[in-house]
Amino acid sequence: MQGNNAYNVYKNNSVNFASKEQLLLMLLDGAVKFSKIGRQAIEDKDIKKAHENIVKTQDIFYELINSLDVPKGGEWAEGLLKVYEFIIDRLVNANIKKDITIMDEVIPIIEDVRNTWEEAYNISKTNS
């Protein structure tokens, strides 16, 4: 029990002291994880688990949309907004239809978004 408590303290501290960039990567790690859990749950015919995890993934992308400053980010932010909206749309369809094929289409896109942000974060660290 004590080890579990230590892990929770560590987890809370890692979130509380993370930079904006690190928090973004944590969110995207969650999106990748939840989308894969949702996909597996569809395969396992666990409708409730599939729904819950796909919705968690959608919620992450809704939050990312809310954090976008499109006027400031201009064309780049508009493009990102379209990618996020596409991901949400595909997740909604996958959830409604419980369709593994759609999940297999969207998961690599989610992973690409995550990897792109990680690359940008690493470049920004080396240039600072």
Rank of each mutant, 00 (worst) to 15 (best):
N4F: 05
Y10N: 10
L25Q: 13
I47A: 06
I37S: 03
N53W: 01
I109F: 09
S124F: 06
S124D: 13
L23K: 14
I100M: 05
Y121H: 13
K82Y: 10
Q40R: 12
N115G: 14
P108E: 10
V15C: 02
M26P: 08
L24S: 10
N12D: 12
L68E: 05
I96Y: 06
G73C: 03
G74H: 10
T57P: 00
Q2I: 07
L25S: 15
T116W: 02
I42Y: 03
K45Q: 11
Y7R: 07
R39I: 03
F86A: 15
V15W: 10
S35G: 14
V92K: 04
N12V: 03
E52R: 01
N53E: 03
V55Y: 03
L81Y: 08
N122A: 12
K72V: 09
I123Q: 15
I37W: 00
D69M: 02
R39E: 15
K36F: 07
L25K: 07
G79A: 12
N66M: 07
I47K: 05
N122R: 08
I109E: 10
A6E: 14
M26R: 04
L24H: 06
D44K: 14
Q22M: 14
I102N: 06
K45T: 06
S128N: 12
S124N: 13
I87Y: 05
S14A: 11
L28R: 06
M26D: 06
K97V: 00
Y84D: 09
N13C: 07
F34T: 11
S128C: 02
L80Y: 04
N8P: 00
N8V: 00
V113T: 14
K82N: 14
A94L: 04
Q40A: 15
E75M: 06
I102G: 09
V106T: 10
I65L: 15
I96D: 03
W76G: 09
Y121G: 01
D59E: 09
D112M: 13
D29R: 11
K20I: 07
N53D: 07
K48A: 13
N127I: 11
Q2N: 09
T57W: 00
T126W: 02
T101L: 14
G74Y: 11
I123M: 10
T101H: 14
K45W: 02
K56Y: 07
K49Q: 12
N127D: 12
G3V: 02
I60M: 11
I47E: 09
N13M: 11
K11F: 02
K82V: 01
W117K: 10
E52M: 01
G73H: 02
Q40M: 12
Q22D: 15
E85S: 14
M26C: 09
I65C: 00
P108G: 13
K98G: 00
N115Q: 15
E119W: 01
E105R: 06
G38T: 07
A50C: 04
M26N: 08
K20C: 00
K82G: 10
I54S: 01
L25A: 12
K49A: 10
I60E: 05
R90Q: 15
E111Q: 15
G30P: 08
